[in-house]
Nucleic acid binder design. Structure first.
Length: 189
DNA sequence: TACTGGATTCACT
DNA sequence: GTGAATCCAGTAA
């Protein structure tokens, strides 16, 4: 089992200065906290300057991906969902989308926000996760802190990591962008 | 200023 | 498997 996240476990800013693909892999098993809710990250996706990434061009929205690391990058999509990323690649362009987490604490809050009792459906997708954790554009650009941050946890075994291309609309690459815990019932489809 | 389409989810068939 | 819901960033003019 995990131990409770504490301030000393908060991943430092320098941890996020590396390449997005490396960080996407290493984020598996780490713990995210916001608004009294805690979850273990079970699925991530790396974005850099490829065609599917907001970071491919510098715009007001993507500025965070170009100019920061260790910041929350939250955007609104499909008219109804938020997605939460952490910016990476100090001096470059990158972010990691957190696609799914395993609920650990604050489960009753998540159930109320998600209008479901089924724990597997609370955070098994980027939009669901933001709804369960109450993450909105209000948090866009914030640094990682003890109250809204990512906390260290033991690395997950390589044998449990599933690697693949992105899912979604633009399947323009077969590079290993997407990482998930293959045995987790809390990952997205 | 107007238009396009999306890093999604859910209900329905 | 398919389609609707629904808003806004980005782009073209």
């Amino acid at each position: 089992m995990h131990r409770n996240a504490s301030q000393t476990d908060l991943l430092p800013e320098s941890w996020f200065a590396r390449d997005a693909v490396v960080i996407a892999r290493e984020l598996l098993g780490k713990v995210i906290r916001h608004d009294g809710c805690l979850g273990r990250i079970v699925e991530t996706e790396a974005y850099t300057t490829d065609a599917a990434s907001h970071g491919r061009v510098l715009t007001e929205r993507s500025r965070l991906m170009h100019e920061t690391h260790a910041r929350w990058y939250v955007y609104f999509t499909y008219g109804m969902h938020h997605c939460v990323n952490v910016t990476t690649n100090q001096g470059g362009v990158g972010a990691v989308l957190i696609r799914a987490v395993e609920p650990l604490e604050g489960i009753e809050r998540m159930q109320a926000r998600r209008s479901t009792e089924d724990i597997r459906k609370l955070c098994s997708g980027p939009g669901k996760l933001c709804q369960a954790f109450c993450i909105t554009k209000e948090q866009n650009g914030l640094p990682l802190t003890a109250s809204f941050g990512i906390f260290d946890a033991p690395p997950v075994p390589e044998s449990s990591v599933r690697v693949g291309p992105r899912i979604g609309i633009r399947k323009d690459t077969d590079l290993p962008w997407r990482f998930s815990l293959g045995d987790s019932p809390y990952a997205s489809r």
